[in-house]
Write a protein that binds this DNA or RNA. Structure first.
Lengths: 242, 242
DNA sequence: ATATCTTATTGTCCCATTGACCACAAGCCA
DNA sequence: TGGCTTGTGGTCAATGGGACAATAAGATAT
């Protein structure tokens, strides 16, 4: 972990910046995944003596000639090998003393990893990367706990107002999987028939004409999110609400 | 405009950074105000030959020992003299070539100026600061048009999901003023009796037991926003929706 | 084969909310 | 006094959501 792409929080003192980056400006990624109906985030274990036992958000430096989002993508791909994921800016955190040795402002992004990629992510990379349940997080370095709290709150809000939850599911999913997703993120119980009607009435799902396989009970229909229709509906004033 | 607090976009080349700031990181403020039922933003006229006739968002550099929000507050107060305003982070913009001479990333904040302060704002400061209708904006420098578009969209969303619109009104306001605010921001027409019922049922307004004065028709009741009640309601799961 | 279990899916009832619209009240002005 | 404008209270039908009952479809156990 001594290469130029080393995340800023792998060092403590002295701060050794790689060449060709914007000093004082870093990226931190808040990566969400869904595991057995539980919402998890991706954390990196700190190995240096100063932060022994603590964890951090995966992050790194922005290159001088690199757009912000590109930097976030690159850092995630370097870490997890996953290319396709939903990624949006979360917020910028810059409290004066958030970083010990220098004034470092960090731009936080949040990402959603689909079920297909979920198990690959942590495996692809070093052993010190792992998924952790948002309901039972370890101690985090710097202000990362604050970033996580803000991000969870933000995700809870977003997921109700934008159809982004689908990014956490496999491409083809059942209505119950979708419902379980909302229950996991919002930490609530929903009524199955009502949830079903609400979703279907939006006309955002297209039936795959295919059924679940390998389940020990009646197989449910599989659906996929129809982003084309969503785009059209949005233009005519439709707004997604759960 | 050659003092150390000069906004980054007042210069073009060479980039002369004031001492004691975080290089490569600036603040831009998107300041909203309501004027005669029209939504306006605060812009600064550019005087240097390079940007003659163009306008910019008021902005500046972040000091090395200053929190981000504090920097945004300071810059606004320096420019307008207004201390009390609603201010929140909007988004960070950092396209590689958004700034001509250097890689500069900017953290955009958005602010809401109350009607009491509205007319003071532009007067307090240089003649090259003025309110401009969001429906008829002049040409802006750099990526400021993009920031403005994003901000307007964001405001339209926020105002429907959070009770922030009150920050644009005087402390005591009538229901019709509130309705006009929503109509101006959302660019729609609303039904008066229905809007009224919807708002009142939320229990977020307390009557001042006072009436409008100096109007050539029946005077309406004045109300004020009750932030205490809102806090309590929020904790019990209430969510503001228009 | 039959019972039983689990989940999928459809249907129904009731109530709160919304939107469209009407009617009257209050105050100013000519 | 009457006409004008705006405030305020009401009706009514349509809609949408929450609670919940009922049935269907598979899989498994006996």
């Amino acid at each position: 972990m001594q290469n130029p792409a080393t995340p800023p929080h792998s060092h403590v003192e002295p701060l050794r910046l790689p060449q060709n980056v914007i000093k004082a400006l870093s990226i931190d990624n808040l990566v969400f995944g869904l595991d057995e109906d539980e919402l998890k985030i991706l954390l990196v274990k700190q190995t240096d003596p100063m932060h022994q036992g603590k964890w951090a958000l995966p992050g790194g430096w922005i290159r001088y000639d690199e757009n912000l989002r590109d930097a976030a993508y690159r850092l995630l791909e370097e870490l997890t090998g996953v290319k396709q994921l939903y990624l949006e800016q979360l917020k910028t955190f810059g409290r004066v003393n958030r970083f010990p040795t220098e004034r470092v402002v960090t731009i936080a992004y949040y990402a959603l990893v689909s079920a297909e990629h979920y198990s690959l992510v942590a495996g692809q990379s070093a052993a010190d990367v792992s998924w952790q349940s948002v309901n039972n997080l370890p101690e985090l370095i710097y202000d990362h706990a604050e970033i996580v709290q803000y991000g969870i709150k933000f995700l809870r809000h977003q997921v109700c107002h934008q159809p982004i939850g689908f990014n956490l599911l496999p491409e083809k999913f059942t209505l119950l999987q979708l419902q379980a997703l909302y229950e996991a993120i919002l930490n609530t119980k929903l009524d199955k028939p009502n949830f079903r009607r609400k979703i279907m009435k939006m006309d955002l799902l297209t039936a795959c004409n295919e059924k679940q396989k390998g389940v020990p009970h009646r197989a449910a229909n599989l659906y996929r999110f129809d982003s084309e229709t969503y785009k059209q509906l949005t233009e005519s004033g439709f707004s997604f609400e759960i």
